[in-house]
Design a protein around this nucleic acid. Structure first.
Length: 554
RNA sequence: UGGGUUAUGGUGUAACGGUAGCACGACAGAUUUUGGUUCUGUUCGUCUAGGUUCGAAUCCUAGUAACCCAACCA
């Protein structure tokens, strides 16, 4: 019965570690730098790290990798916490690399005393030159052989603020000829007279990533430290620090980061979009950030499902954004309330329907739900339907309204098109139809079968709303192949605003935590720009549209 | 003139020497008061060349391709 789901390579390692008794329980961590908002690529990592400890038992810490005060900010800390929570995960401890600054300093002193670290007066340029190239060995710094005592004193002076930014650094003393560039006397500490969002002005030296991350893992007794592929070359240094310091041996494992078609996944470039006001902030619904997806109407469930489906492996990938859309449709189909909204209206007049009469039709909120509730929709003589649902000279498989053709109005009557009224320019201003009184929804004795069902709203009862429809932000599938400025690849049609859509009255009381399906259109949710004067909806995703595909075939 | 990582349908991901499977997409059909949903079916793959083996995606040898590494970023 239990259909075995195959394990990814990290799960295999964990199961082996648990089985061998290497660990009784596991510990992971999600270690964002608070220098930007989380995006869907981070969601993959979050689901992995938290998912592992949910599955195997154990704890996951949220640890902010805040070792570079000039780029970090509490705004990002707050957003990251909100996003992780919203995704549905609870961290065991909220921690900061900056919590360990004192400890890290002591570790540095240990290395100096062991003759494994030295203070270097070389400039950034000189150090870069000393590194050599991947194919040529580096050269040793002239300051490499300072005595332990001198290094100790100099390092203490660095901390005491006796030097300016860039004047001195602390370097590990490893091997300038190492084939791994990261082992060529990497920097451990640099001087930055900068205000830190947590430690304030207590420090003017800050540890580099390589001297903070592994030790932080070790301090927290992280068993499986999971990161992305580009950190593979760092692993040797990660292990070196832990071994020389003789501290808890956390182990690093690397998986391939998420890449998605038409989607920019670089925090740096996302920041650029925000700074250059190409988008309207980090939560602009076109952004791939968690906060943008939340605003746009994505559900945490659908994002988790997506992360589950894409899998964990070590090969580079480019996931079709269509898979994300599939996941959100799948969930929204189950939970969204059905409503009718006409975006581009054309008036239908039912010539045989009494004037001044209003009927109330009942329609289910969600046909997928066996216990569905329902709402009432007012119907009257004058209605709006979608302009694209009528054609004067339709192709063969057009099942909508056309002269002489019949359609069902959802939850109401079958109508037949009798006449088309046009203005002087030939634009259709009105479609005159007759309705079949005996075709009333749920009580149809007309015996008439129609192929098409249209959504509609009653003219006199309609409310208006603004609807924002989004499309992909970029024109090209693979942003990693984009050369030059990303601005060149922007999709000019990524946002379309319908300022005056006509909606059924039930939407007057739309709520922020509800999801809606506008029949035959897509899934929508209330935007935060909604006010007393204006109701604003965001389109989360369209419905699948096989007719659009058919029509395109011509 | 280096080191590292990875190669399975269009896109992802399994198969751990023994039937190349699953999902998304695409295509075809059924159902449908949403051209939605649901259901059924079809299409399409082991980077190349050798080798080991009764049997190779898997093991060996040699190639090829892609990605990563020379920030006082993480």
């Amino acid at each position: 019965m239990s259909e075995e789901k195959s394990l990814n390579f990290i799960e295999e390692i964990i199961e082996a570690d648990l089985k061998s008794g290497k660990y009784k329980t596991i510990a992971t961590r999600f270690p964002p730098e608070p220098n930007g908002y989380l995006h869907v690529g981070h969601a993959k990592s979050i689901c992995l790290n938290f998912g592992l400890t949910q599955k195997y038992g154990g704890t996951t810490n949220l640890r902010f990798d805040d070792t570079n005060p000039v780029k970090e900010d509490v705004e990002y800390v707050d957003s990251i916490k909100q996003d992780v929570k919203w995704l549905g995960f609870e961290w065991a401890n909220e921690l900061y690399a900056s919590d360990y600054f004192e400890q890290l300093y002591d570790y540095a002193v240990v290395l100096i005393k062991k003759g494994l670290a030295y203070v270097d007066d070389s400039t950034a340029e000189e150090i870069a030159a000393q590194k050599g190239t991947p194919t040529h060995a580096g050269t040793e710094s002239p300051y490499r052989n300072r005595t332990v005592e001198e290094n100790l004193e100099l390092f203490a002076d660095m901390r005491a603020g006796k030097y300016k930014d860039g004047e001195k650094v602390l370097r590990a003393k490893i091997d300038m000829a190492a084939p791994n560039m990261h082992m060529r006397d990497p920097l451990l500490y640099r001087i930055k007279h900068a205000h830190h969002h947590r430690t304030g002005d207590a420090w003017c030296i800050y540890p580099m990533y390589d001297f903070a991350h592994g030790q932080s893992d070790s301090i927290e007794k992280i068993t499986h430290s999971i990161c992305t592929l580009e950190f593979i070359p760092h692993r040797q240094l990660y292990d070196w620090c832990i071994e020389q310091l003789d501290i808890f041996p956390s182990k690093q494992y690397e998986f391939a980061r998420l890449n998605m078609t038409y989607t920019l996944m670089s925090k740096r470039k996302l920041l650029q979009l925000v700074n250059e006001k190409i988008v309207d902030g980090w939560d602009d619904p076109r952004m791939p950030t968690i906060s943008a997806m939340r605003r746009r109407g994505y559900t945490p469930e659908s994002i988790r499902e997506f992360c589950d489906r894409i899998g964990i492996a070590k090969r580079d990938n480019l996931i079709d954004v269509g898979l994300l859309e599939f996941c959100v449709r799948e969930h929204l189909n189950k939970i969204a309330l059905r409503r009718m909204v006409v975006f581009d209206p054309v008036k239908v007049v039912l010539t045989n329907y009494p004037e001044n009469e209003t009927e109330l039709f009942t329609s289910e909120d969600n046909p997928e739900d066996p216990n569905t509730t329902s709402r009432e929709i007012p119907f009257s003589r004058e209605l709006y339907i979608e302009r694209e649902d009528f054609m004067e000279d339709p192709p063969k498989k057009f099942f909508r309204l056309a002269p002489g053709q019949m359609v069902r109005l959802k939850s109401a009557y079958i109508i037949k098109c009798d006449e088309v009224v046009k203005d002087a320019e030939g634009n259709i201003t009105e479609i005159r139809c007759s309705y079949l009184p005996e075709s009333k929804s749920g009580n149809d004795t007309s015996g008439t079968k129609v192929k098409g069902t249209l959504h509609w709203v009653s003219v006199q009862h309609a409310i208006t709303a603004e609807v924002r429809s989004y499309d992909r932000l970029f024109k090209i599938e693979d942003l990693s192949q984009a050369e030059g400025e990303i601005n060149e690849y922007l999709n000019p049609d990524s946002l379309h605003i319908t300022t005056n859509a006509y909606a059924e009255p039930a939407l007057k009381t739309a709520k922020f935590d509800e999801r809606y399906q506008f029949l035959r259109k897509g899934y929508y949710t209330l935007d935060k720009d909604t006010s007393e004067e204006k109701i604003v909806f965001n389109r989360t995703v369209t419905l699948k549209d096989t007719w659009a595909k058919e029509a395109k075939k011509g």
